[in-house]
Nucleic acid binder design. Structure first.
Length: 649
DNA sequence: CGCATGACGATTTTT
DNA sequence: TCGTCATGCG
């Protein structure tokens, strides 16, 4: 497809079209749901590719989500024989740059990347070393606090007193300093570091920055409303000399503020790049009139927004159904019945329906109802392949074999399967490691050779364990990674451990391990594979379309669209979620409203919003009021169905 | 050291 | 309610 056709498909007006096609200078596109934002970006890329056939490698396209990146890759690859190595998420591109310049950041080129789980574990260990009570200070929240600092580009040296107002922040800061030094000792980085280390390298080495500035002639960003401050700084550095930057985003769809996303980046963009052309895409191609009206009226209640008026040429068709239910169970059954009905009457397939919930616990009662009604369903995002225990365990074996100073992997598997190396022994190893600033692996070796700290039984099994790792390490030089994974699963005793259990769970785990070795075949070496799994999001592995009803959180639904959307649980105390308001006040409420907006605008043709007058939460019966958001949807585009009792809406 | 038992606590969203 | 964590015993 040519650029011309694609642009037509978007039906931009003349001015918009001109701006979108402009190849030089910054461009900020604000788009409403369903206007094909990613398509706008693709158009730009295609356009540039057509104009500079020889210089394709000079284009950097970053997107926040892998979904969008993949979509682009597929469409562009189909049209062009070029490779686009610099097309990916902020994290994947930053990681690539960091590996190339690892030495400048005092890292080895195969540094490891911690995931959220690893971070929390590390924080926990540090807190116990520092004698900080993890009951009083939840390690998860400490880790999150550190992460938020990284989001706004504050390293341990840049945190100032204004960032240390609460006791919690002061404690987190103490942990942060140790955490960061532990990371460098481990030759590891976390997600935030990928960006921070880039920025640090760019600041310290003008030549390196200039080489990337020269190489990336054009920068493009999708889902711009989700960028955080660190990402913005990084972008601005790269865009500096040329100002060839194009960002696409929708401020009304910013739902990741709690993760450090900064809507203000959209406003700052206009300040930093004053020559920016701003294009508003207000025609919506996705939803029917009533759905769009509901969404627009709702979001108009927000103050912190650019403001845009969506319109559509689509007919209004049916109205938005608002259903009042006696309790959560009735709500679930209502959804199940409607799904079944639509299947029978309109002969639609199951996967055209989707249920979007605010909190993951809401899925349970819906699942129960679907099971009773024999409706096939799938909960998206709850089970993540690479986050499963057995997978992470085997990966830890692999990591440790490749890199002996991977302390987190060491801790993870030292006694799994049980080889009678218990807590006290591990603490002894930790102490030695801490005192002499060496890795746990080296500390363990040291203890075996030079001390009598451990009992005989433990000594022997520790020795066997270390030897096993060393054996695998040398075998990695000779054998390919798939074969190695198979060996490790066998020789670690992990397979036997699972086989002995003989439960349903253990056999799925074994199945997953086979799946893992299969996945390995797609990569040419183990480093590539480890890099891949640290950076992919789980959405990407959702490739096979199944004819089942999808159930997922509102957050997971961003960027997707469905014929029919159910939005259950619109109640005070659940949606807007009180915690969001507690923590962020008005800002939090507005983000909740944007979340509602995202939910509504996922629907192409039919939308159901429901609430229960009685719901069991955490084993307690609540009698919530209908959500305040319901009152913000105009009655004339709704069809209100009363429940079996008096509705309070 | 490993297992069992009981108490207790925490329940938003995740690249 | 469920799952995690600490404690205590064999």
């Amino acid at each position: 497809m040519q650029l011309e056709e694609q642009t037509k498909a978007l039906a931009l007006n003349a001015a918009q079209k001109q701006a979108v096609e402009a190849t030089e200078g910054p461009l900020l596109v604000l788009a409403g749901a369903g206007t094909g934002k990613t398509l706008v970006l693709i158009n730009r890329i295609v356009h540039i590719l057509q104009q500079n056939k020889a210089s394709h490698s000079q284009i950097l396209a970053t997107t926040f989500t892998n979904k969008a990146a993949n979509e682009m890759r597929i469409r562009i690859f189909n049209m062009h024989p070029y490779q686009l190595p610099w097309l990916g998420t902020f994290h994947s591109i930053a990681s690539k740059i960091l590996r190339i310049n690892a030495a400048a950041a005092n890292l080895s080129e195969n540094f490891s990347i911690l995931d959220a789980d690893d971070q929390t574990k590390l924080v926990k260990i540090i807190m116990s070393d520092l004698n900080i009570d993890s009951k009083q200070f939840n390690p998860k929240i400490v880790a999150a606090t550190i992460q938020r600092w990284k989001d706004i580009s504050l390293g341990p040296d840049q945190v100032t007193n204004t960032d240390l107002k609460s006791e919690f922040q002061r404690v987190s800061f103490r942990v942060y300093k140790v955490y960061q030094s532990k990371l460098s000792l481990m030759d590891a980085v976390d997600f935030g570091d990928l960006l921070l280390k880039n920025i640090e390298i760019f600041r310290k080495n003008a030549a390196i920055l200039e080489s990337y500035q020269a190489n990336f002639k054009y920068l493009m960003v999708d889902e711009y409303q989700d960028t955080n401050t660190a990402q913005y700084i990084w972008l601005r550095m790269l865009a500096q000399p040329r100002h060839n930057i194009c960002c696409v985003g929708d401020d009304d769809q910013s739902i990741y503020g709690w993760r450090g996303a900064e809507v203000g980046n959209i406003l700052r963009f206009e300040e930093d790049f004053q020559e920016a052309q701003i294009v508003k895409l207000e025609q919506n191609y996705r939803s029917t009139g009533n759905i769009l009206k509901a969404a627009s009226s709702l979001i108009a209640n927000n103050n912190m927004r650019h403001g845009k008026t969506l319109w559509t040429e689509a007919k209004s068709e049916g109205k938005v159904v608002i259903k009042s239910c006696w309790n959560d169970k009735e709500e679930a059954n209502f959804i199940a019945n409607e799904v079944k009905l639509s299947g029978r009457v309109n002969n639609t397939t199951m996967n055209k329906n989707t249920i979007l919930v605010r909190a993951i616990f809401q899925t349970r009662i819906i699942e129960e109802s679907f099971i009773n009604h024999l409706i096939p369903y799938k909960v998206i995002g709850s089970l993540k392949f690479y986050e499963r225990q057995e997978i992470k365990d085997i990966l830890a074996y692999i990591r440790l074999s490749v890199k002996q100073n991977d302390d987190l992997s060491f801790e993870r598997i030292i006694n799994k399967p049980a080889r009678s190396i218990g807590k006290t022994s591990i603490q002894k190893i930790r102490d030695v490691a801490n005192d002499t600033y060496i890795s746990l692996f080296s500390a363990a070796e040291h203890i075996l050779v030079n001390t009598n700290l451990l009992g005989n039984k433990t000594r022997n099994s520790l020795k066997a364990f270390l030897n096993l790792i060393k054996k695998w390490q040398s075998e990695f030089q000779l054998l390919n990674h798939v074969e190695m994974a198979k060996r490790i699963i066998e020789e670690s005793g992990y397979k036997d451990m699972l086989s002995r259990e003989e439960t349903v769970e253990s056999s799925t785990k074994l199945e997953n391990l086979r799946e893992l070795t299969k996945a390995l075949e797609d990569f040419s070496n183990i480093t590539e594979f480890l890099e891949h799994i640290s950076l992919i999001s789980d959405n990407d592995s959702r490739a096979k379309p199944e004819d089942v009803v999808n159930i997922m959180t509102l957050h997971a639904a961003k960027g997707l669209e469905f014929d029919t959307v159910f939005l259950p649980g619109w109640e005070e105390g659940l949606f807007p979620h009180p915690k969001a308001i507690d923590e962020m006040g008005q800002k939090g409420l507005e983000e909740e409203r944007r979340l509602a907006y995202v939910g509504i605008t996922r629907a192409k043709r039919k939308l159901y919003i429901s609430y229960a007058l009685s719901r069991r939460m955490y084993n307690q019966w609540n009698n919530p009021l209908p959500s305040r958001f319901l009152k913000e949807i105009p009655r004339e585009c709704c069809l209100v169905i009363e429940g079996s009792s008096n509705s309070r809406y």
